[in-house]
Design a protein around this nucleic acid. Structure first.
Lengths: 330, 330
DNA sequence: CTGTTAGCGCGTTCAA
DNA sequence: TTGAACGCGCTAACAG
C-alpha cells in the first residue's frame, strides 16, 4: 500500500484536509504546520495518487506523447526539450510507441490533459483519428491534413533559403543529398523546392538518392558525387545526421570546407554549432519549436483557442560551412 | 463530461451497479439485461474511467518503462517487442525519458503495476535507487549491482563463443571492433573476454577503438584495419549496427564474406538473418529476452518471487558470414 | 487557521 | 437476479 495523506495526517497529528492544503501550498495553513507536514511527507516518500486527484479536479498534470517510430537525432532532441519544458511547468510527460489509435486510447484511459502526436510519415497506414475523446490533441508534421491543430515547419521555404544563399555566394553547380528510397512526405517538399528554385535561378543541380536518413547514407552519397569529374561546389543536406556523413566524406577526399566545398544543412540543433566546422543551417531552431509546442499545449489545456495550423518559418543561419566557390564566375 | 455508468443505468432503466456488473461480464446478470446494457454503452460511446476504477481495484494494467537515452537499433527493437507482448496480455506500456528517479516518481503517481528500467551505462551519475515505492521494479543490464531484480545477458560468454568458433574454423588473426571512447560497462565485459580467450587459444588479436556504436564508426574502423598489409581473417563486431558498417567496408574493398573475411556479430535480432549475407551471431535472441522480461514482469505483479539476478546465456548461431580462412594453417 | 463533510466514478460486499 | 451502501484518495466547500 502506498502512503496517503491520511497516513501523513496521522503522523503529523492533524486532519487529512490540512495535509492536503499544506501539500498544495495553500495560504490557509500555518507556516509551521506546513513545514512539518512537508517534512513528514518527504520522509514517508509520499506521491499523490493521480487517479484520485484526477477524479476530483479533472486534471492529471500529464501530457501524452505519441511517438510511433523511434529514430533520428533531431526527433529525439526535440522530444527531450519538450519534456524538459513541460517538466518545468510541473507536467509529466508520458510516451507511447504504440500505433496512433491505440496510443490515444491508452492516454484517454489514463486521463492525460493533452496529447501530442509525432506524425511519422513513413507509416504505411494513415492513422484513423476518429477515435472519440475530448482530450485536446496537437499534431506535429502534417499541417492542415488532419482535423486537429497542427504545428509544422515550412520545409520548402528552408530549401529555398539554402539555394538562394548558395546562389548569392556564386555557386552554380549544387547537389541535394536527402531523398530516401522510402516515400517520405517531409522530404518530398524540400526536394521539390530545391528543383524549382535552382531552375528559377539557372543553377545546375542534382538530387542524390539515398537509402535512409542515417549518417552513413550521407557519407556514401557524398563520396559518390564528390568523386565525379565535375563535382558540385556546394551540397545541401536534408538533415543533421546526413551532414555528419557528408563532412566525413569531404575530409577523406581532402576537400576543405568551406574553401573547396560549401555545405548547408537542414535542421538547426545545438550540435550544429559545436562541430569542427560550425554549420550554416536552414530550418527552425529546435528550441523554438519546443517552445511553440509547449505553449500551444498549454493553451489547449486551458481551453483557449489556437490556430488550426501553425506554420513556423525557417531561418538561414550562416556559420562557417559556406563561402564563395574558389573560381567564382560572378 | 464523459458518459458514466450512471448515464447508462438511467437509459437502460436499471441501477448503476447492474451496469457495472454487465460491463464486466459478471454471471450475476441476466443475459438479456447484459445485452441491452452493452448495446447502450456502445451507442453512448462509453469509456470506463480508469482513474475511478483504479481507485477501487488498485490495478492500472499499465507498465512503466524507463528509457533515459533514446538510441540504438537493438534497444529500440527490444522495447517494441516487450510493448507488443504486454499489449497482448492487455497491459499498456508507458514510457518515460526522464532521469531514473523522476521517472520512477512519475510512474508511482500514476500507479503503474510495475516498472521496467533500461539502465543506461553511459549515464554519468549513478542513479539513486533508494526512492521509496512498493511498485515492483525490474532492471535490465546491471546484474547484481542494484538492490532490485535484474535481467542481464552474460556478455562475456558471447565473445568467448565467438572467439572459439573462429578458432575452430582455423582463424589465427582476428580483430574486435566495438570499444567506444566513452566508458561503457556493457562493452568492457565483452572486450575483456575477447582478449582473455584469444590469448588462451594463442590467436593474434587486436581491438579497434571507435568513437561510438553507430554504423558509420564500424565502417571507418573496418576500413582502417582491413587495409593494413597483414589484415585479420576475421572480425568480431560489438553490435548489429557496427556490423552493417563493417560489411559495407568489406564490400568496398572487394573482400567477399565469408571467403576472404569472416564476421561474427554480437546481437541476435531478426535483421541479422535478412541481410545479403545472413550473419553468424553470438548473443541472446532478442525475442527470448523480451519473453523473459515480460514473464518476469508478470510474476512480479502477481507478487510471486523471482530470482534477484537472471542471467541469460548467449548462443552461437552459425549462418553464412563465417567460414574457414582461405589459407587455413591448421 | 483547522477540521468536517460531500462527492468525483467505479467495484464489491451484502440485502432484498 | 437486482439494488443499496460503502469506500478507494483526494479536493473543495463549509463550519468551527
Amino acid at each position: 500500500m502506498s502512503v496517503t495523506i491520511k497516513d501523513i495526517a496521522e503522523r503529523a497529528g492533524v486532519s487529512f484536509s490540512t495535509v492536503s492544503k499544506a501539500l498544495r501550498n495553500s495560504p490557509l495553513v500555518q507556516e509551521k504546520t506546513k513545514q512539518k507536514v512537508l517534512r513528514i511527507a518527504e520522509e514517508m516518500g509520499y506521491q499523490p495518487n493521480i487517479a484520485a486527484r484526477r477524479l476530483v479536479s479533472k486534471k492529471s498534470q500529464a501530457i501524452g506523447v505519441v511517438w510511433p517510430s523511434v529514430e533520428r537525432a533531431t526527433t529525439g532532441a526535440l522530444i527531450t526539450l519538450i519534456n524538459e519544458e513541460l517538466e518545468q511547468r510541473s507536467y509529466t510527460t508520458l510516451l507511447s510507441i504504440n500505433r496512433i489509435e491505440s496510443a490515444i486510447a491508452a492516454f484517454h484511459r489514463f486521463q492525460v490533459d493533452a496529447i501530442f502526436i509525432f506524425y511519422n510519415h513513413e507509416e504505411q497506414v494513415p492513422p484513423d483519428f476518429r477515435y472519440q475523446t475530448n482530450i485536446p490533441i496537437l499534431i506535429y508534421g502534417v499541417a492542415g491534413r488532419v482535423p486537429y491543430p497542427t504545428i509544422d515547419v515550412r520545409r520548402d521555404r528552408a530549401t529555398m533559403l539554402a539555394v538562394r544563399h548558395l546562389h548569392e555566394l556564386g555557386h552554380r553547380e549544387i547537389a541535394y543529398i536527402g531523398e530516401p528510397s522510402r516515400f517520405d512526405l517531409l522530404q518530398v517538399e524540400k526536394i521539390r523546392m530545391f528543383r524549382e528554385e535552382s531552375e528559377r535561378l539557372g543553377i545546375r543541380h542534382s538530387v542524390v538518392p539515398i537509402d535512409n536518413m542515417e549518417t552513413h547514407s550521407g557519407y556514401l552519397a557524398a563520396k559518390r558525387i564528390l568523386q565525379q569529374k565535375q563535382r558540385p561546389t556546394a551540397i545541401i543536406s536534408g538533415s543533421y545526421d546526413l551532414t555528419r556523413g557528408i563532412m566525413q566524406a569531404a575530409q577523406e577526399l581532402k576537400l576543405s570546407i568551406p574553401e573547396q566545398l560549401s555545405i548547408v544543412s537542414y535542421d538547426n540543433i545545438p550540435q550544429s554549432v559545436t562541430l569542427e566546422v560550425p554549420l550554416t543551417t536552414v530550418g527552425v531552431d529546435i528550441a523554438k519549436i519546443a517552445d511553440k509546442v509547449t505553449e500551444t499545449l498549454l493553451h489547449l489545456m486551458n481551453e483557449e483557442s489556437v490556430p488550426l495550423s501553425i506554420f513556423m518559418e525557417p531561418e538561414l543561419v550562416v556559420r562557417s560551412s559556406t563561402a564563395a566557390p574558389l573560381a567564382a564566375s560572378r
